[in-house]
């Protein structure tokens, strides 16, 4: 919902695009190949997109891998709301759905997929959520944009683009499936609820 507001261009003039559709597409194709290389063909691979921005990205990566390897790759969605560390800073949020493919996560190489890596708190929550769902053989992380400013010892295994930013800036990822267009925008930071350094931002919104 929030993402739509942002995408609708509350302050379009103040934001500039740093990645456009074709660059995002190329970055995802490269990540798909990297995943196949690192997982040696990806035979026990499962892609899980973190709601909301990570889900279409997980689907697109699964399609690209399928195109290369000629076999389907299980992908799903992970909602991390109940595992957030900032739940008590705002009124209770609506939950998204968690959809785990029928193969489950036990014994599989799970690649978590998200749009922006910032403080690392969302990924921390995702690791906790995953822990309650089963025991993967390994967990890796793929992100479209790494904007730095980590607050936890977390790093990505696959990065679409490293984007050096200041905390006075926000990064917004727009995706065709959610907002009707692919782009990564940088704009001035909006005041966020809770602590100013708190990184868990509105899913799919500006971070």
């Amino acid at each position: 919902m929030h993402a739509h507001n942002h995408a609708g261009g509350e302050r379009p003039d103040q934001r500039r695009a740093v990645l456009e559709g074709p660059e995002i597409s190329r970055a995802l194709t490269r990540i798909a190949h990297e995943i196949l290389e690192r997982t040696k063909g990806g035979h026990d691979l499962t892609l899980l997109g973190i709601r909301t921005g990570g889900v279409p990205l997980a689907q697109r990566l699964a399609e690209r891998i399928e195109r290369v390897e000629q076999r389907p790759v299980p992908w799903g969605a992970l909602d991390i709301t109940m595992y957030r560390d900032d739940l008590r800073l705002a009124p209770a949020r609506a939950l998204g759905s968690t959809d785990i493919p029928p193969e489950g996560v036990d014994g599989r190489t799970v690649v978590l997929v998200d749009d922006v890596l910032f403080s690392g708190r969302t990924v921390r929550a995702a690791l906790d959520a995953l822990n309650d769902l089963g025991r993967p053989r390994a967990v890796q992380l793929a992100v479209l944009v790494d904007r730095g400013h980590r607050e936890l010892p977390i790093r990505a295994d696959y990065v679409g683009k490293n984007l050096p930013t200041s905390l006075r800036e926000s990064v917004t990822v727009l995706l065709e499936e959610l907002h009707g267009r692919d782009a990564v925008l940088i704009g001035p930071a909006k005041p966020r609820p809770g602590a100013p350094e708190s990184a868990a931002a509105t899913p799919g919104g500006a971070r």
Binding site: D79, M82, Y83, L87, L95, D132
Partner: peptide, 23 residues
Amino acid sequence: LLILDTARELSQVSERSVKKLPT
């Protein structure tokens, strides 16, 4: 409807091996 939708998501928890959320 928010309560009913939330309940629907939470019903998944009762089917998992770890029937617990830290919330």
